[in-house]
Design a protein around this nucleic acid. Sequence first.
DNA 1: AAGTGGTCTAGACCACTAG
DNA 2: TAGTGGTCTAGACCACTTT
Lengths: 255, 255
Amino acid sequence: MGTTQLETVPEPKYWHLKTVLSEALDQDFAVGEVLPNERELAARFGVARATLRQALEQLELEGRLQRRRGVGTTVAPPRVGVAVGSAQHSWPGEAADGWEPQDASESLPPAAVVKLLGTGGAFAADQPVHTVRRTRMTNGQAVAAELLYVPAASVPGLPAIEAPSGPARARAVLRELQRLVLDGQDRSVELGSARADDAKELDRLPGAPVLLVTTRYFTAAGTAAVSVATYRADTCRLTFGGSGGVEITHEPVAS
Amino acid sequence: MGTTQLETVPEPKYWHLKTVLSEALDQDFAVGEVLPNERELAARFGVARATLRQALEQLELEGRLQRRRGVGTTVAPPRVGVAVGSAQHSWPGEAADGWEPQDASESLPPAAVVKLLGTGGAFAADQPVHTVRRTRMTNGQAVAAELLYVPAASVPGLPAIEAPSGPARARAVLRELQRLVLDGQDRSVELGSARADDAKELDRLPGAPVLLVTTRYFTAAGTAAVSVATYRADTCRLTFGGSGGVEITHEPVAS
DNA sequence: AAGTGGTCTAGACCACTAG
DNA sequence: TAGTGGTCTAGACCACTTT
């Protein structure tokens, strides 16, 4: 009979709210414009603030909004495309692609890194490892923080006397690394949440969603270095210009 | 005097909670084990349920936990590495890499896709486009849902009579596509939230965090196809075996 | 000091799964 | 039907930025 299937799956309020807001953003707001504050928006839509916030959180996750404590909620610009796999065979720091060496120290790497370094080569957990910190800047904004782990055995030529820490030391490690013959590399991307120190560097709150890019650098002798880069997931779109060269420049396809 | 800088930045409860739970997971729980329910955990830690949930959400985002309504919260297995860029030059569907064609139809693509198709070639917004739906399976689990947009002009040889929809139609479109000479491809990865239909396919709730992989396929004539693949961010680690071949198999490096 | 987003509480009800 | 996670409310206070 006329029993049409009405609302078999009632849409959650925050989900509907997100859709409404999303359309409003497209039509009535310009990039950088500030939205009314959360209390007012919640009142205007007749929902509790927590519910409104759930919708805003999703929109922020999708890169549509930017929220800053003490300031307000603004409409975010389209995500920045950051090249991650442009040059197929290259050591970190070979091209001037926005990475700024920050610091370097010698320490024992976390267990997960030890496992990565141990692949296909001799690496013992108690070997000393140079840990290089770098930050990637785009348009004056920090978009990524990296920890690069280089076993001392990979850079035997590194003078121990040279500046024991700081940017100069970091550059020295990178320079030594580039003397080796790079045999290949390996990359993986996954979702994570920002550790406290990375969050600070990226001007985000701890726990903010990030894209974790893990890279292994191979020489004939095995894994010569491992990099773990933390990209801001809200503002970044990682691009892998495999072949064909042209850069993707677009707005997100799916919500 | 003795005014030591105590707790300049008081750690939020949910953050501390997350750390505690994370350690407990490492030490006292096996993969697949079910945790006590949220009300009990909240009581045990002396916090409101909402606060406890905030911690659980983060752990789920990091792939440590798996929650299912009506069932419970279980310890998640390490993320599955899914190869995304293994073969550098290949049309979708060329290798038997777990993709299962689901359906195909002819329709007008969303505006964002039109923009991508228009790069470096003649493509008008009102041209018909074949939309192929595929699902990627790993260990009997759906890990990704894809929409592949193929302008009719790219596959002129496709018989209009052949099965107008369904898997057979999808396979036909892929087959025709593979006749072309692939000139190159382009890929980008970003964070998104699952649309309702993708969420259903991936057995997640709408809005679940996903990794959006956008690929453009080039021929000499321009962009011949565009693919938008939606990967479950909780269970997947995308691997790009650029060169050197060996697969990364590890647990997450950073939290 | 005022205004913003971030955290937290103590409830309630709903949708889903499984016995 | 009982038990689970998912949604929602109406408050409160805190941390931060700006004026």
